[in-house]
Structure formats: C-alpha cells, structure tokens
C-alpha cells in the first residue's frame, strides 16, 4: 500500500495514543512496583525489587493468590463440559425453545454483577456453604459461562454439517463421532473459552467480595482490603505478578490456538 505520508503519520499517532491510554494503568503499576521508596508513587522513587521480595514473604498475599488460582481452576473445570456441550448444541442442532435457552444462558451476563453476587451470597448462605473455596468457583462459572458458550459455538458454527455424517458413513456410532470428530473440530473454541474462563475467574472481584470471608479471601479482594488500610508499593508488586499471570494465559492461548480465533469467537 502506498498511502500518502501525512495519512501514515496521522494513523500512527492515533495508534500510539490509543496504545498509551490502554496501557497507562499497567505501566503506572509496573513502574510503581519497582520503587525504592516506602510509598506508592509514579514515577517511581529509585529502583529496587524490595517490594517483590516482600510479597514473596507475605503469607497472606501468597495464600490469597493460591486461592484465586484454585477458584479459577474450579470455575474452568465446571465450565468446560457444560459450556462445550451447550455451545455445540446451540449452534449445531435445531433445538426446541432454542431462543429461550440462548436468552437464559446469556442472562447471567446481562444482570449487574452486584445483583447476581447478592443472589449467590444469599443462596450459598442459606445452604451453609460460605467459607469454602468451591462455591466461589461455581459462582464465577455461573456469571461468566456465556463467554465459554460463545467461544465454543463460534467454533461449532463454522463446522461442515457433513463432517458428522461422514463419520457415521465411516462406521462411527454417535458417541465415537462426537469424541473423534466433533470434539476435536471445536477444540480451538474449547481452549480459548477455557482460558478466558480461567482469566475471568482469576480476576473476578465483585462477586468474590460478597462470597469470601477472612478464610477464603481471593487475591483481588485481598488487594482491595489492603488498599483500604494503607497503600504500600507491595500492592503494586502483587498487581504486576497478577497481570503477568493473565499475560501468561494470553500467551498460552496464542501458542495453542492463535489469538485470531480467540478474537473472532465473539
């Protein structure tokens, strides 16, 4: 392409500005985490890794981080079978009440998180399940499931409908057809959906805030609690670790299925 120079300059300036705006919070936190001072500040006051050393020793932060990982893992493990089957069913088969099902499955997404959070809190409270990790995982799964379903149904929607007939023609009974043909074909959607579910559950704050107590506090809630008392640079450091985890998952996604599929899966 031979765009005029002025056009190229305008486009690149705009791209640069957008990139700066989007990455500014991350850069501020990243910079602040390396400060050698005692208060959180940007630009940082000197350079040191002392706050990383501190969080490595801080048992409460480390425990909260491990709990967040546990919540994300539980959420993803529940979402994979449910989201995969629902996604395939919604995109491939003519189901009675399909529209109703679609709205029902998207409902958690349209309700304000604070609403579903309070609902889940009441529900789990009644059942006496608060104070454990797994209800938080279930809750994260419930509110984020539409993302998983979208990812899978986008993959399944692009599938040649003759593929399953071809498997049957090869002598595969329905279950073998599903395992050997349908499932591998939607695997990119399943992978991108699961990683997305993992990140969303790892980062989930509002619902976790309502469902956690001192024993089950997750990392975002722990950071929030700390900010309310005293803002020290260790919070910036743990945020950076946190962001790095999410970035790692994204990198994994790119390696496994390619980001283009992930971005296309609505």
């Amino acid at each position: 392409m031979n765009a005029p120079l002025s056009k190229t300059i305008v486009i690149w300036v705009m791209v640069g500005m957008v990139l700066i705006v989007l990455s500014a919070p991350t850069l501020v936190v990243l910079g602040a985490s390396f400060t050698s001072g005692n208060i959180i500040a940007f630009p940082p006051d000197g350079f040191s890794l002392q706050w990383y050393a501190k969080i490595a020793m801080a048992a409460d932060l480390r425990d909260a981080f491990m709990r967040s990982l546990a919540v994300a893992t539980i959420c993803t493990l529940i979402a994979i079978p449910i989201g995969t089957l629902a996604g395939i069913a919604l995109s491939k088969y003519a189901i009675r009440f399909e529209k109703t099902f679609q709205v029902y499955l998207l409902l958690p997404f349209t309700i304000p998180l604070i609403g579903s959070g309070i609902g889940l809190m009441l529900l789990f409270g009644q059942m006496g399940m608060l104070g454990q990790i797994w209800p938080i995982g279930v809750a994260c799964c419930v509110i984020n499931l539409p993302f998983m379903i979208w990812a899978v149904s986008a993959s399944a929607g692009g599938l040649d409908p003759d593929l399953e007939l071809a498997a049957a023609n090869c002598g595969a009974p329905p279950i073998s057809t599903f395992l050997h043909v349908t499932l591998p074909a939607v695997m990119p959607g399943v992978i991108s959906g699961s990683l997305l579910m993992f990140i969303l559950a790892l980062n989930e704050f509002l619902v976790s805030l309502l469902l956690t107590d001192a024993r089950t506090v997750t990392l975002p809630v722990q950071i929030y609690n700390s900010i309310r008392s005293i803002i020290t640079p260790d919070l910036a450091a743990i945020s950076v670790v946190f962001i790095a985890c999410a970035a790692l998952v994204i990198a994994l996604l790119d390696r496994l299925v390619g980001l283009d599929i992930f971005l296309k899966s609505k």
Binding site: D160, D162, L163, L165, A166, A167, A168, N169, C170, G171, A172, P173, T177, H180, V181, P184, A185, M187
Partner: peptide, 19 residues
C-alpha cells in the same frame, strides 16, 4: 442407521476430518 451400513461415500464438500 448409517454407521451400520456398508456404504462408502464421497461427499460434495468432501467432509474430510481437518484435524
């Protein structure tokens, strides 16, 4: 059912297993 029949078929869009 189709999988119990001894019939080979070449589909219009081939329907080869992409993976």
């Amino acid at each position: 059912p189709p999988h119990k029949r001894s019939i080979g078929m070449v589909f219009q869009k081939l329907a080869l297993f992409p993976h």
